[in-house]
Design a protein around this nucleic acid. Structure first.
Ligand SMILES: [Mn+2]
Ligand SMILES: [Mn+2]
Ligand SMILES: [Mn+2]
Ligand SMILES: [Mn+2]
Lengths: 220, 220
DNA sequence: TTATTAATTTAGGTTTGTCTAAATATATTT
DNA sequence: AAATATATTTAGACAAACCTAAATTAATAA
Protein backbone atom coordinates (compact mmCIF):
# COMPACT_ATOMS: atom_id res chain seq x y z
CA UNK A 1 0.00 0.00 0.00
CA UNK A 2 1.09 3.57 -0.67
CA UNK A 3 -0.16 6.58 1.22
CA UNK A 4 -0.32 10.29 0.54
CA UNK A 5 1.91 12.70 2.41
CA UNK A 6 -1.11 13.89 4.29
CA UNK A 7 -2.24 10.41 5.28
CA UNK A 8 1.29 9.63 6.44
CA UNK A 9 1.44 12.75 8.58
CA UNK A 10 -1.84 11.78 10.24
CA UNK A 11 -0.76 8.20 10.87
CA UNK A 12 2.54 9.25 12.37
CA UNK A 13 0.91 11.87 14.57
CA UNK A 14 -1.67 9.40 15.86
CA UNK A 15 1.12 6.96 16.68
CA UNK A 16 2.94 9.58 18.75
CA UNK A 17 -0.26 10.66 20.50
CA UNK A 18 -0.92 7.05 21.46
CA UNK A 19 2.44 6.82 23.19
CA UNK A 20 1.07 9.26 25.76
CA UNK A 21 -2.57 8.26 26.00
CA UNK A 22 -3.83 4.98 24.71
CA UNK A 23 -6.58 6.57 22.67
CA UNK A 24 -6.22 9.79 20.69
CA UNK A 25 -8.80 12.57 20.31
CA UNK A 26 -9.90 14.83 17.49
CA UNK A 27 -8.85 18.04 19.19
CA UNK A 28 -5.56 16.55 20.30
CA UNK A 29 -4.66 15.56 16.78
CA UNK A 30 -5.88 18.90 15.43
CA UNK A 31 -3.49 20.63 17.81
CA UNK A 32 -0.39 18.68 16.79
CA UNK A 33 -1.16 18.86 13.07
CA UNK A 34 -2.19 22.52 13.26
CA UNK A 35 -5.45 21.78 11.46
CA UNK A 36 -9.09 22.33 12.34
CA UNK A 37 -11.04 19.55 14.06
CA UNK A 38 -13.36 19.22 11.07
CA UNK A 39 -10.41 18.28 8.87
CA UNK A 40 -9.37 15.61 11.36
CA UNK A 41 -12.82 14.04 11.24
CA UNK A 42 -12.70 13.98 7.43
CA UNK A 43 -9.35 12.22 7.34
CA UNK A 44 -10.29 9.77 10.08
CA UNK A 45 -13.19 8.56 8.02
CA UNK A 46 -10.77 7.87 5.23
CA UNK A 47 -8.21 6.13 7.45
CA UNK A 48 -10.98 4.04 8.94
CA UNK A 49 -12.17 2.97 5.51
CA UNK A 50 -8.59 1.90 4.81
CA UNK A 51 -8.58 -0.05 8.09
CA UNK A 52 -5.68 1.93 9.53
CA UNK A 53 -7.56 3.17 12.60
CA UNK A 54 -10.28 1.98 14.91
CA UNK A 55 -12.67 4.91 15.10
CA UNK A 56 -16.10 5.41 16.65
CA UNK A 57 -17.54 8.90 16.17
CA UNK A 58 -17.23 10.97 19.35
CA UNK A 59 -15.25 8.17 20.99
CA UNK A 60 -11.68 8.82 19.87
CA UNK A 61 -9.44 6.55 17.81
CA UNK A 62 -6.47 4.16 17.85
CA UNK A 63 -4.26 2.77 15.12
CA UNK A 64 -5.01 -0.79 14.00
CA UNK A 65 -2.04 -3.15 13.95
CA UNK A 66 -1.75 -2.44 10.23
CA UNK A 67 -1.79 1.29 11.05
CA UNK A 68 0.99 0.80 13.56
CA UNK A 69 3.11 -1.01 10.99
CA UNK A 70 2.71 1.89 8.60
CA UNK A 71 3.52 4.40 11.34
CA UNK A 72 6.71 2.56 12.23
CA UNK A 73 7.89 2.53 8.66
CA UNK A 74 7.38 6.30 8.41
CA UNK A 75 9.23 6.80 11.68
CA UNK A 76 12.02 4.58 10.40
CA UNK A 77 12.41 6.76 7.33
CA UNK A 78 12.27 9.95 9.38
CA UNK A 79 14.91 8.89 11.84
CA UNK A 80 17.25 7.37 9.28
CA UNK A 81 17.20 10.64 7.33
CA UNK A 82 17.80 12.57 10.54
CA UNK A 83 20.80 10.39 11.22
CA UNK A 84 22.07 10.88 7.68
CA UNK A 85 21.67 14.66 7.86
CA UNK A 86 23.43 14.87 11.17
CA UNK A 87 26.15 12.27 10.65
CA UNK A 88 26.99 12.64 6.97
CA UNK A 89 25.89 16.16 6.06
CA UNK A 90 26.88 17.69 9.41
CA UNK A 91 23.58 19.36 10.09
CA UNK A 92 23.11 20.64 13.61
CA UNK A 93 20.82 18.83 15.86
CA UNK A 94 17.90 21.24 15.65
CA UNK A 95 18.05 21.50 11.84
CA UNK A 96 17.43 17.89 10.96
CA UNK A 97 13.79 17.53 11.88
CA UNK A 98 12.21 19.85 9.31
CA UNK A 99 14.12 18.42 6.38
CA UNK A 100 13.45 14.85 7.51
CA UNK A 101 9.79 15.81 7.67
CA UNK A 102 9.86 16.04 3.86
CA UNK A 103 12.32 13.24 3.11
CA UNK A 104 10.30 10.75 5.14
CA UNK A 105 7.58 10.77 2.48
CA UNK A 106 9.81 9.39 -0.27
CA UNK A 107 8.67 5.86 0.15
CA UNK A 108 10.96 3.60 -1.85
CA UNK A 109 11.66 0.61 0.39
CA UNK A 110 14.88 -0.11 -1.44
CA UNK A 111 16.06 3.45 -0.89
CA UNK A 112 15.53 3.21 2.84
CA UNK A 113 17.05 -0.22 3.26
CA UNK A 114 20.13 0.78 1.27
CA UNK A 115 20.38 4.02 3.22
CA UNK A 116 20.22 2.02 6.45
CA UNK A 117 23.04 -0.21 5.22
CA UNK A 118 25.09 2.79 4.07
CA UNK A 119 24.73 4.38 7.50
CA UNK A 120 25.81 1.16 9.21
CA UNK A 121 22.43 0.25 10.72
CA UNK A 122 22.33 3.02 13.33
CA UNK A 123 20.09 2.26 16.31
CA UNK A 124 19.34 5.80 17.47
CA UNK A 125 18.66 9.10 15.74
CA UNK A 126 20.42 12.35 16.69
CA UNK A 127 17.85 13.01 19.42
CA UNK A 128 18.43 9.59 20.94
CA UNK A 129 15.17 8.15 19.63
CA UNK A 130 15.36 4.50 18.53
CA UNK A 131 15.21 3.73 14.79
CA UNK A 132 12.82 0.90 13.84
CA UNK A 133 14.48 -1.87 11.80
CA UNK A 134 13.22 -2.97 8.39
CA UNK A 135 10.69 -5.28 10.08
CA UNK A 136 9.38 -2.37 12.12
CA UNK A 137 10.88 -3.65 15.35
CA UNK A 138 11.72 -0.83 17.69
CA UNK A 139 13.87 -0.91 20.76
CA UNK A 140 12.31 0.81 23.71
CA UNK A 141 15.11 1.79 26.05
CA UNK A 142 14.00 2.44 29.59
CA UNK A 143 15.42 5.86 30.00
CA UNK A 144 15.25 8.03 33.07
CA UNK A 145 15.47 11.79 33.25
CA UNK A 146 18.47 13.42 34.95
CA UNK A 147 16.16 14.68 37.64
CA UNK A 148 15.42 11.11 38.74
CA UNK A 149 18.69 9.18 38.81
CA UNK A 150 20.54 8.42 42.02
CA UNK A 151 23.56 10.49 43.05
CA UNK A 152 27.12 9.52 42.08
CA UNK A 153 26.18 6.93 39.48
CA UNK A 154 27.75 7.30 36.04
CA UNK A 155 25.03 7.77 33.45
CA UNK A 156 25.07 8.22 29.68
CA UNK A 157 22.90 10.80 27.95
CA UNK A 158 20.76 8.96 25.42
CA UNK A 159 17.81 11.13 24.65
CA UNK A 160 16.52 14.68 24.74
CA UNK A 161 12.95 15.56 25.48
CA UNK A 162 12.49 18.16 22.80
CA UNK A 163 14.28 19.36 19.69
CA UNK A 164 14.14 23.11 19.90
CA UNK A 165 17.20 25.18 19.16
CA UNK A 166 16.83 26.81 22.57
CA UNK A 167 17.52 23.46 24.21
CA UNK A 168 20.33 22.72 21.77
CA UNK A 169 22.00 26.05 22.51
CA UNK A 170 21.96 25.46 26.23
CA UNK A 171 23.21 21.88 25.95
CA UNK A 172 26.00 22.94 23.61
CA UNK A 173 27.02 25.61 26.09
CA UNK A 174 27.16 23.06 28.89
CA UNK A 175 28.96 20.57 26.61
CA UNK A 176 26.31 17.91 26.92
CA UNK A 177 25.25 15.80 23.93
CA UNK A 178 23.98 12.32 23.16
CA UNK A 179 26.60 9.92 24.51
CA UNK A 180 28.02 12.25 27.14
CA UNK A 181 28.99 10.43 30.36
CA UNK A 182 28.16 12.29 33.54
CA UNK A 183 27.08 11.89 37.14
CA UNK A 184 24.78 13.84 39.42
CA UNK A 185 26.64 15.00 42.52
CA UNK A 186 23.93 16.84 44.41
CA UNK A 187 20.31 17.91 44.31
CA UNK A 188 19.13 21.20 45.81
CA UNK A 189 15.75 21.08 47.45
CA UNK A 190 15.18 24.79 47.11
CA UNK A 191 14.76 24.90 43.30
CA UNK A 192 15.28 21.25 42.33
CA UNK A 193 18.42 22.27 40.47
CA UNK A 194 21.22 19.70 40.31
CA UNK A 195 25.01 19.65 40.35
CA UNK A 196 26.46 17.63 37.48
CA UNK A 197 30.01 16.46 36.80
CA UNK A 198 31.41 15.39 33.42
CA UNK A 199 34.52 13.24 33.82
CA UNK A 200 37.28 15.19 35.62
CA UNK A 201 35.74 18.60 34.95
CA UNK A 202 34.51 20.97 37.60
CA UNK A 203 30.86 20.24 38.48
CA UNK A 204 28.27 22.72 37.27
CA UNK A 205 24.64 23.50 37.90
CA UNK A 206 21.62 22.53 35.84
CA UNK A 207 18.09 23.84 36.29
CA UNK A 208 15.16 21.56 37.05
CA UNK A 209 13.63 22.37 33.67
CA UNK A 210 16.75 21.30 31.80
CA UNK A 211 17.27 18.20 33.95
CA UNK A 212 13.80 17.00 33.02
CA UNK A 213 14.58 17.18 29.30
CA UNK A 214 17.80 15.18 29.48
CA UNK A 215 17.35 11.42 29.58
CA UNK A 216 20.05 8.92 30.50
CA UNK A 217 20.70 5.27 31.04
CA UNK A 218 22.85 4.06 33.91
CA UNK A 219 23.89 1.07 36.00
CA UNK A 220 23.81 -2.46 34.60
CA UNK B 1 9.67 31.21 -4.29
CA UNK B 2 8.51 27.65 -3.62
CA UNK B 3 6.69 25.50 -6.11
CA UNK B 4 4.45 22.46 -5.91
CA UNK B 5 5.65 19.06 -7.07
CA UNK B 6 3.37 19.39 -10.05
CA UNK B 7 4.62 22.83 -11.02
CA UNK B 8 8.20 21.59 -10.71
CA UNK B 9 7.53 18.62 -12.97
CA UNK B 10 6.07 20.92 -15.61
CA UNK B 11 8.95 23.37 -15.42
CA UNK B 12 11.56 20.66 -15.70
CA UNK B 13 9.78 18.98 -18.61
CA UNK B 14 9.49 22.28 -20.49
CA UNK B 15 13.21 22.85 -19.97
CA UNK B 16 14.06 19.47 -21.47
CA UNK B 17 11.67 19.97 -24.39
CA UNK B 18 13.33 23.29 -25.16
CA UNK B 19 16.71 21.60 -25.48
CA UNK B 20 15.34 19.93 -28.61
CA UNK B 21 13.11 22.59 -30.08
CA UNK B 22 13.33 26.19 -29.01
CA UNK B 23 9.63 26.43 -28.29
CA UNK B 24 7.53 23.72 -26.67
CA UNK B 25 3.99 22.68 -27.56
CA UNK B 26 0.93 21.62 -25.60
CA UNK B 27 0.74 18.16 -27.11
CA UNK B 28 4.48 17.65 -26.77
CA UNK B 29 4.37 18.42 -23.07
CA UNK B 30 1.21 16.32 -22.64
CA UNK B 31 3.10 13.38 -24.12
CA UNK B 32 6.12 13.58 -21.82
CA UNK B 33 4.04 14.24 -18.71
CA UNK B 34 1.46 11.60 -19.64
CA UNK B 35 -1.36 14.05 -19.10
CA UNK B 36 -4.14 15.35 -21.31
CA UNK B 37 -3.60 18.52 -23.33
CA UNK B 38 -6.35 20.31 -21.40
CA UNK B 39 -4.38 19.86 -18.17
CA UNK B 40 -1.32 21.35 -19.82
CA UNK B 41 -3.23 24.45 -20.84
CA UNK B 42 -4.52 24.86 -17.29
CA UNK B 43 -1.06 24.66 -15.76
CA UNK B 44 0.47 26.95 -18.38
CA UNK B 45 -1.93 29.68 -17.42
CA UNK B 46 -0.73 29.37 -13.88
CA UNK B 47 2.96 29.29 -14.81
CA UNK B 48 2.42 32.32 -17.01
CA UNK B 49 0.77 34.23 -14.16
CA UNK B 50 3.85 33.39 -12.07
CA UNK B 51 6.06 34.71 -14.89
CA UNK B 52 7.82 31.38 -15.35
CA UNK B 53 6.86 30.94 -19.02
CA UNK B 54 6.21 33.09 -22.05
CA UNK B 55 2.95 31.77 -23.42
CA UNK B 56 0.58 32.89 -26.17
CA UNK B 57 -2.50 30.68 -26.63
CA UNK B 58 -2.10 28.41 -29.66
CA UNK B 59 1.48 29.64 -30.18
CA UNK B 60 3.49 27.39 -27.85
CA UNK B 61 5.61 28.44 -24.89
CA UNK B 62 9.15 28.96 -23.57
CA UNK B 63 10.57 29.34 -20.08
CA UNK B 64 11.38 32.88 -18.97
CA UNK B 65 14.85 33.41 -17.58
CA UNK B 66 13.35 33.06 -14.10
CA UNK B 67 11.73 29.80 -15.26
CA UNK B 68 15.08 28.54 -16.50
CA UNK B 69 16.69 29.29 -13.16
CA UNK B 70 14.02 27.27 -11.39
CA UNK B 71 14.40 24.42 -13.88
CA UNK B 72 18.14 24.30 -13.35
CA UNK B 73 17.76 24.10 -9.61
CA UNK B 74 15.36 21.16 -9.96
CA UNK B 75 17.76 19.44 -12.35
CA UNK B 76 20.59 20.07 -9.91
CA UNK B 77 18.66 18.34 -7.16
CA UNK B 78 17.69 15.46 -9.42
CA UNK B 79 21.20 14.77 -10.63
CA UNK B 80 22.86 15.16 -7.25
CA UNK B 81 20.45 12.60 -5.80
CA UNK B 82 21.12 10.29 -8.75
CA UNK B 83 24.82 10.58 -8.06
CA UNK B 84 24.25 9.89 -4.36
CA UNK B 85 22.12 6.84 -5.08
CA UNK B 86 24.59 5.42 -7.50
CA UNK B 87 27.85 6.33 -5.77
CA UNK B 88 26.96 5.97 -2.10
CA UNK B 89 24.00 3.60 -2.02
CA UNK B 90 25.23 1.43 -4.92
CA UNK B 91 22.05 1.60 -6.92
CA UNK B 92 22.32 0.39 -10.49
CA UNK B 93 22.26 2.89 -13.22
CA UNK B 94 18.68 2.31 -14.34
CA UNK B 95 17.28 2.38 -10.79
CA UNK B 96 18.30 5.89 -9.81
CA UNK B 97 15.97 7.95 -11.96
CA UNK B 98 12.62 7.02 -10.40
CA UNK B 99 13.76 7.58 -6.85
CA UNK B 100 15.45 10.87 -7.78
CA UNK B 101 12.17 11.89 -9.36
CA UNK B 102 10.71 12.05 -5.83
CA UNK B 103 13.78 13.27 -3.95
CA UNK B 104 14.20 16.23 -6.30
CA UNK B 105 11.09 17.85 -4.84
CA UNK B 106 12.52 18.20 -1.36
CA UNK B 107 13.56 21.77 -1.78
CA UNK B 108 15.77 22.75 1.13
CA UNK B 109 18.64 24.73 -0.38
CA UNK B 110 20.85 23.90 2.56
CA UNK B 111 20.20 20.19 2.12
CA UNK B 112 21.25 20.28 -1.50
CA UNK B 113 24.34 22.40 -0.97
CA UNK B 114 25.51 20.19 1.88
CA UNK B 115 24.78 17.08 -0.16
CA UNK B 116 26.85 18.55 -3.00
CA UNK B 117 29.73 19.16 -0.61
CA UNK B 118 29.40 15.66 0.92
CA UNK B 119 29.57 14.15 -2.57
CA UNK B 120 32.67 16.18 -3.42
CA UNK B 121 31.03 18.49 -5.97
CA UNK B 122 30.50 15.90 -8.70
CA UNK B 123 30.23 17.36 -12.19
CA UNK B 124 28.27 14.59 -13.92
CA UNK B 125 25.45 12.30 -12.90
CA UNK B 126 25.53 8.53 -13.45
CA UNK B 127 24.19 8.97 -16.98
CA UNK B 128 26.93 11.43 -17.85
CA UNK B 129 24.63 14.46 -17.67
CA UNK B 130 26.20 17.59 -16.21
CA UNK B 131 25.12 18.72 -12.73
CA UNK B 132 24.34 22.46 -12.44
CA UNK B 133 26.30 24.21 -9.66
CA UNK B 134 24.63 26.16 -6.86
CA UNK B 135 24.45 29.21 -9.11
CA UNK B 136 22.67 27.17 -11.77
CA UNK B 137 25.69 27.17 -14.08
CA UNK B 138 25.77 24.07 -16.24
CA UNK B 139 28.62 22.72 -18.28
CA UNK B 140 27.62 21.73 -21.77
CA UNK B 141 30.13 19.20 -23.03
CA UNK B 142 30.18 18.83 -26.77
CA UNK B 143 29.73 15.13 -26.99
CA UNK B 144 29.60 13.02 -30.11
CA UNK B 145 27.93 9.66 -30.55
CA UNK B 146 30.05 6.57 -31.18
CA UNK B 147 28.58 6.36 -34.65
CA UNK B 148 30.21 9.66 -35.61
CA UNK B 149 33.77 9.63 -34.28
CA UNK B 150 36.77 9.01 -36.53
CA UNK B 151 38.46 5.60 -36.57
CA UNK B 152 41.38 4.74 -34.29
CA UNK B 153 41.05 7.72 -31.98
CA UNK B 154 40.85 7.00 -28.26
CA UNK B 155 37.53 8.25 -26.88
CA UNK B 156 35.98 8.27 -23.42
CA UNK B 157 32.36 7.35 -22.85
CA UNK B 158 30.72 10.30 -21.10
CA UNK B 159 27.02 10.01 -21.67
CA UNK B 160 24.23 7.62 -22.56
CA UNK B 161 21.26 8.59 -24.64
CA UNK B 162 18.60 6.87 -22.59
CA UNK B 163 18.28 5.29 -19.17
CA UNK B 164 16.35 2.11 -19.75
CA UNK B 165 17.43 -1.12 -18.14
CA UNK B 166 17.53 -2.71 -21.60
CA UNK B 167 20.37 -0.37 -22.55
CA UNK B 168 22.07 -0.87 -19.20
CA UNK B 169 21.94 -4.64 -19.57
CA UNK B 170 23.56 -4.53 -22.98
CA UNK B 171 26.26 -2.07 -21.93
CA UNK B 172 27.07 -4.12 -18.84
CA UNK B 173 27.40 -7.20 -21.00
CA UNK B 174 29.81 -5.39 -23.31
CA UNK B 175 31.66 -3.94 -20.32
CA UNK B 176 31.05 -0.34 -21.31
CA UNK B 177 30.21 2.34 -18.74
CA UNK B 178 30.69 6.05 -18.16
CA UNK B 179 34.46 6.63 -18.22
CA UNK B 180 35.34 3.62 -20.36
CA UNK B 181 38.19 4.33 -22.83
CA UNK B 182 37.74 2.80 -26.27
CA UNK B 183 38.38 3.29 -29.95
CA UNK B 184 36.39 2.52 -33.08
CA UNK B 185 38.39 0.26 -35.39
CA UNK B 186 36.02 -0.19 -38.31
CA UNK B 187 32.59 0.73 -39.60
CA UNK B 188 30.54 -1.67 -41.73
CA UNK B 189 28.56 -0.06 -44.50
CA UNK B 190 26.10 -2.92 -44.70
CA UNK B 191 24.34 -2.35 -41.36
CA UNK B 192 26.25 0.64 -39.92
CA UNK B 193 27.51 -1.61 -37.14
CA UNK B 194 30.95 -0.80 -35.72
CA UNK B 195 33.96 -2.67 -34.40
CA UNK B 196 35.08 -1.35 -31.01
CA UNK B 197 38.22 -2.06 -28.98
CA UNK B 198 38.64 -1.47 -25.24
CA UNK B 199 42.30 -1.25 -24.29
CA UNK B 200 44.12 -4.51 -25.13
CA UNK B 201 40.96 -6.59 -25.37
CA UNK B 202 39.73 -8.30 -28.50
CA UNK B 203 37.57 -5.93 -30.58
CA UNK B 204 33.85 -6.60 -30.65
CA UNK B 205 30.83 -5.50 -32.62
CA UNK B 206 28.22 -2.91 -31.71
CA UNK B 207 24.95 -2.30 -33.53
CA UNK B 208 24.10 1.04 -35.09
CA UNK B 209 21.26 1.50 -32.60
CA UNK B 210 23.58 1.05 -29.63
CA UNK B 211 26.35 3.21 -31.15
CA UNK B 212 23.90 6.08 -31.45
CA UNK B 213 23.08 5.92 -27.73
CA UNK B 214 26.68 5.99 -26.51
CA UNK B 215 28.27 9.44 -26.43
CA UNK B 216 31.98 10.13 -26.05
CA UNK B 217 34.54 12.87 -25.99
CA UNK B 218 37.85 12.47 -27.77
CA UNK B 219 40.95 14.25 -29.07
CA UNK B 220 42.11 17.57 -27.60
C1' DT C 1 -31.36 15.38 36.70
C1' DT C 2 -31.63 19.14 34.11
C1' DA C 3 -28.73 22.96 32.28
C1' DT C 4 -24.52 24.49 30.60
C1' DT C 5 -20.16 23.85 28.43
C1' DA C 6 -16.90 21.52 25.66
C1' DA C 7 -15.82 18.28 22.04
C1' DT C 8 -16.97 16.50 17.77
C1' DT C 9 -19.32 15.97 13.54
C1' DT C 10 -21.98 17.60 9.48
C1' DA C 11 -23.02 20.77 5.77
C1' DG C 12 -21.45 23.34 2.46
C1' DG C 13 -17.27 25.90 0.36
C1' DT C 14 -12.49 26.58 -1.70
C1' DT C 15 -8.07 25.45 -4.03
C1' DT C 16 -5.13 22.47 -6.69
C1' DG C 17 -4.60 19.46 -10.20
C1' DT C 18 -6.62 16.41 -12.92
C1' DC C 19 -10.15 14.70 -16.56
C1' DT C 20 -13.82 14.36 -20.81
C1' DA C 21 -16.33 16.41 -24.33
C1' DA C 22 -17.23 20.26 -27.03
C1' DA C 23 -15.73 24.44 -29.29
C1' DT C 24 -12.36 27.03 -31.71
C1' DA C 25 -8.07 28.23 -33.89
C1' DT C 26 -4.31 26.98 -36.90
C1' DA C 27 -2.17 24.11 -40.48
C1' DT C 28 -2.48 21.27 -44.51
C1' DT C 29 -4.64 19.62 -48.54
C1' DT C 30 -7.16 19.73 -52.50
C1' DA D 1 -9.48 29.75 -51.45
C1' DA D 2 -12.16 26.38 -49.52
C1' DA D 3 -12.34 22.13 -47.21
C1' DT D 4 -10.40 19.09 -44.10
C1' DA D 5 -7.49 17.68 -40.47
C1' DT D 6 -4.91 18.61 -36.38
C1' DA D 7 -3.74 21.18 -32.31
C1' DT D 8 -5.30 23.79 -28.65
C1' DT D 9 -8.43 25.88 -25.57
C1' DT D 10 -12.82 26.25 -22.97
C1' DA D 11 -16.59 24.46 -20.22
C1' DG D 12 -17.93 21.77 -16.81
C1' DA D 13 -16.83 17.83 -13.42
C1' DC D 14 -14.34 15.42 -9.87
C1' DA D 15 -11.22 13.91 -5.95
C1' DA D 16 -8.14 15.27 -2.24
C1' DA D 17 -7.40 18.00 1.49
C1' DC D 18 -8.32 21.78 3.50
C1' DC D 19 -11.64 25.47 5.70
C1' DT D 20 -15.93 28.09 8.42
C1' DA D 21 -20.21 27.98 10.55
C1' DA D 22 -23.89 25.38 12.21
C1' DA D 23 -25.57 21.22 14.25
C1' DT D 24 -25.20 17.51 17.46
C1' DT D 25 -23.36 14.59 21.09
C1' DA D 26 -21.02 13.85 25.41
C1' DA D 27 -19.22 15.57 29.69
C1' DT D 28 -19.72 18.48 33.75
C1' DA D 29 -21.81 21.45 36.89
C1' DA D 30 -25.81 23.25 39.16
MN1 LIG E 1 12.24 14.63 13.91
MN1 LIG F 1 14.38 12.60 15.92
MN1 LIG G 1 17.03 11.01 -14.08
MN1 LIG H 1 20.43 11.43 -15.00
Amino acid sequence: MNFSTSEENYIKAIFHLQQEEDTATTNGLAAVLKARPASITDMLKKLKSKKLVHYQPYRGFRLTSEGKKVALSIIRRHRLWEYFLSEKLKFAWDEVHDVAEDLEHVSSKKLIDKLDEFLGYPRFDPHGDPIPDSQGRIEKHQQVSLSEIPLNKTAIVCHVGDQTSALLELMKHKNIGIGTKLEVKKRFAFDQSIEVKIRQQIPFNISELLAKKIFVKYGV
